[in-house]
């Protein structure tokens, strides 16, 4: 099950995003062990160096931690994961607002549009 990636972003960042989303959805919980570098590489059909970069990036974000000889784990700091949730939401909304403003919508129209869309979804 090799996954596909889009072109405008490094693959490692796309995998970081996917893993973060799995954490938000609760598919990966605090303290869960992540696959070994090689296993995830095979699973995703990517270079092991790329996965190593993913884990380094997750550590930098303090979302995961590597324990020597044991592997890489999602952090047990629940508040960090809570913060991740807020950060990703904030980021996504910022991008959305930026795009909407670029198309000439004002704040009221944006809020209106979102409420309508939410009702219909």
């Amino acid at each position: 099950m090799v996954q596909s990636f889009h072109n405008n972003q490094p693959i490692y960042l796309q995998i970081v995003q996917r893993l973060c989303r799995q954490v938000l959805r609760g598919e990966l919980g605090a303290g869960d062990k992540l696959p070994s570098v090689r296993d995830l590489a095979v699973q995703m059909g990517v270079n092991p160096n790329t996965v190593q970069r993913v884990y380094t990036e997750l550590e930098r974000l303090e979302v995961a931690e590597t324990r020597r000889g044991l592997g890489t784990f999602i952090t047990e700091q629940e508040n960090r994961l809570q913060r991740l949730r807020e950060e990703l939401m904030e980021q996504q909304i910022k991008n959305f607002i930026h795009d909407m403003r670029e198309m000439g919508f004002d704040a009221e129209e944006i809020v209106d549009g979102v409420q309508k869309a939410l009702k219909n979804s």
Partner: peptide
């Protein structure tokens, strides 16, 4: 997906050497 780097060769010359991540992030 499995390449770290690429070397482009043409007509007996090296036309470019680049990191795949960079091609994506810098040039999209």
């Amino acid at each position: 997906p499995i390449l770290d780097m690429v070397v482009a060769v043409q007509n007996g010359n090296i036309q470019g050497i680049a990191e795949v991540d960079e091609i994506r992030s810098k040039y999209g």
